[in-house]
Structure formats: C-alpha cells, structure tokens
C-alpha cells in the first residue's frame, strides 16, 4: 500500500459499502467494487453510475447533487466536510453510503 492519497499506482480498487435499502439495486450485494483508480469521490460515483445506475439514482438527485439526507464517508470522513465530490479517494479505500439521522 502507498501513502499517496490519490491512490496512484497502488491497489486499484475501491469498495463502496451500501446500506441495506440500496442492496436490492445491486443484486442484493452489500458492496460495489470499482476497479481502476478513481481519484475523487465524484469520479468514483461516475463509475458507479455506469455499472449501477439505480444505486446512483438514489444517492444523487437528477442534477448530480448528493441527496440532503444521505451521507457518504471516505474511511471515517464525511465528504461534506472534506471537499464534497472533490474529496480524494485512495486506492483500496472504503467508501460508505449511509442514511442520515434526520427523520421524524
């Protein structure tokens, strides 16, 4: 493993961990593995959109904005506080999608 935060030249796959509600849209799998070297969260989800458009459709609005009550973490970091879709993704990273605590 490299310490390069861009993941260049390192283990070239990223694991997207899905919440239970989205797993039926991914063949009942709990993860989506993205091969290659996505350098940012935005690039990662562009790949997810190609392979799993229905998953992307529930995480983002039709204008490509992260839904207001959905959180995405790179490792343990909420991307809302670390650069949004420009947040760097290291090779081998785990990216987790979770519903927010909001509700009533």
């Amino acid at each position: 493993m490299s310490s390069d935060p861009t993941g260049a030249g390192v283990e070239a796959r990223t694991t997207v961990i899905l919440p239970g509600a989205l797993r039926p849209l991914a063949g009942d799998r709990s993860t989506i593995v993205v091969e290659g070297e996505p350098r940012t969260v935005g690039a990662l989800f562009a790949s997810v959109r190609e392979t799993h458009p229905a998953v992307w459709d529930r995480v983002f609005t039709e204008q490509g904005e992260l839904r207001p009550h959905v959180n995405v973490f790179v490792g343990r970091d909420d991307i809302r506080w670390s650069g949004g879709l420009e947040t760097p993704v290291s090779g081998g990273a785990e990216v987790t999608i979770l519903p927010a605590v909001s509700g009533g």
Partner: peptide
C-alpha cells in the same frame, strides 16, 4: 423515501404486490 427519493409504483392485483422501475421514472 426521506433518504432515497420519490418513485412510482403500480399494482395490478389491488395491492397484493407493487412493481416499478429501479431507476426513478420521474425526473427533471
């Protein structure tokens, strides 16, 4: 859905089952 957005569902058996597209069919 408060988290994952709004979609359309139809039932052809008066509510025994519902079907719909995986991708939301109503989008701007």
């Amino acid at each position: 859905n408060p988290f994952w957005g709004t979609t359309m569902r139809r039932s052809d058996d008066l509510g025994s089952s519902w079907s719909g597209k995986e991708e939301r069919p109503v989008k701007f």
